[in-house]
Amino acid sequence: MLITPPKVNSNYKIGIIEDDALLAQMLRTLLQADHRVESVILAHDLREGLDLIATRSMDFLIVDIGLPDGDGTTAIQQVRTTQPDCTVMVYSVFEDDARLFKALQAGAHGYIQKQDATEGFLETLLNRQDGCVVSPAIAKRMVGFFAEIVLPTASTTADKNILSARENEVLVFISQGKSLNEISRVMGLSQHTTKTYLRRIYEKLEVNSKLLAVQKAKENFWI
């Protein structure tokens, strides 16, 4: 697996968002021991982390996603928007699929478990691939997750046919966030007809909300 060369500049500015003060200080000590590091700034909750992102330019941001006042993925989204050149690494005890993929979808460049952190942490940041760096345990979970994904089968396609073409079209528009008024206008239907299609979708998919209808359709590769 090819690895991109480290950044050629030094004097790295690193931010850490970690609510455990002892762990944060330990990580800061590890990073400051490297002569290439100019500064390491700590934030101990999401509010402080967002302030850090808004006021300090950083080369790297290390984020714990389990913060006392919110989800660390909010900080990931914010820094990826305002400082797109900043490398973002999740540093967390969590390894469940939901947190892992939520963090990566938010824009994290890697996901390292706290128990896997070593004195080479800076090299992990510098040598990250353009894709993603993860702990061995996290990599194993990712492989397992994708191995369980099964391509749509004939039965799945048949299930999709429980919706008519027009009902499926309405469902696609709903998944795009369009309102019933917008769907009616785009499809040239009356609001009454659009509501009738939506009611039939609920009945056929055995759900009672737009969110559940879209979720079921996506889980089964229907849309």
Rank of each mutant, 00 (worst) to 15 (best):
L2H: 06
T4E: 08
P6Y: 01
K7F: 03
N9Q: 09
S10D: 10
S10M: 09
S10F: 09
N11C: 03
N11L: 08
Y12Q: 04
Y12H: 12
G15K: 09
D19Q: 11
L23K: 10
T29C: 01
R36G: 13
E38L: 07
E38H: 12
I41C: 03
I41L: 07
H44I: 00
H44P: 07
R47D: 01
R47C: 01
E48R: 12
L50E: 06
T55N: 11
R56A: 06
M58G: 06
D59E: 06
F60M: 05
I62M: 14
V63Y: 04
D64M: 08
I65P: 03
I65V: 14
L67W: 06
L67A: 09
D69T: 04
D69C: 09
G70Y: 06
D71G: 09
G72I: 04
G72E: 03
I76R: 08
Q78H: 13
Q78E: 14
V79A: 08
T81R: 15
T82V: 11
T82F: 06
T82W: 03
D85H: 14
V88D: 09
M89I: 13
M89H: 06
V90E: 12
V90M: 13
V90K: 15
Y91L: 15
V93M: 15
V93S: 15
F94N: 14
F94H: 15
E95S: 15
D96A: 11
D97S: 13
A98K: 15
R99Q: 08
F101K: 04
K102F: 00
K102L: 02
L104T: 10
G107T: 09
G107W: 02
H109D: 13
Q113G: 12
K114R: 14
A117C: 13
L122T: 05
E123S: 14
E123K: 14
T124N: 08
L126F: 03
C132S: 07
C132L: 12
C132H: 01
C132T: 10
A137D: 10
I138K: 02
I138P: 05
K140H: 07
R141N: 04
M142D: 02
V143A: 12
F146Y: 13
A147D: 02
E148T: 06
I149G: 05
V150K: 15
V150C: 09
P152W: 01
A154D: 08
A158K: 13
A158H: 09
A158T: 03
S164P: 12
S164T: 05
E167Y: 12
E167Q: 15
N168T: 04
E169Y: 08
V170I: 11
V170W: 11
F173Y: 14
F173E: 10
F173D: 09
I174W: 03
S175R: 05
S175W: 01
G177S: 05
L180K: 14
N181L: 12
N181G: 14
E182L: 11
I183M: 09
S184P: 08
M187G: 04
G188K: 02
G188A: 06
S190I: 08
S190A: 10
H192F: 10
K195I: 02
Y197F: 14
Y197Q: 11
L198D: 00
R199Y: 07
R200V: 01
Y202V: 01
Y202T: 00
E203R: 15
K204V: 00
K204Q: 04
L205Y: 08
L205P: 02
E206Y: 05
V207Y: 10
V207G: 04
N208S: 13
N208T: 07
S209G: 07
K210T: 00
Q215F: 00
Q215R: 13
K218W: 01
I223Y: 05
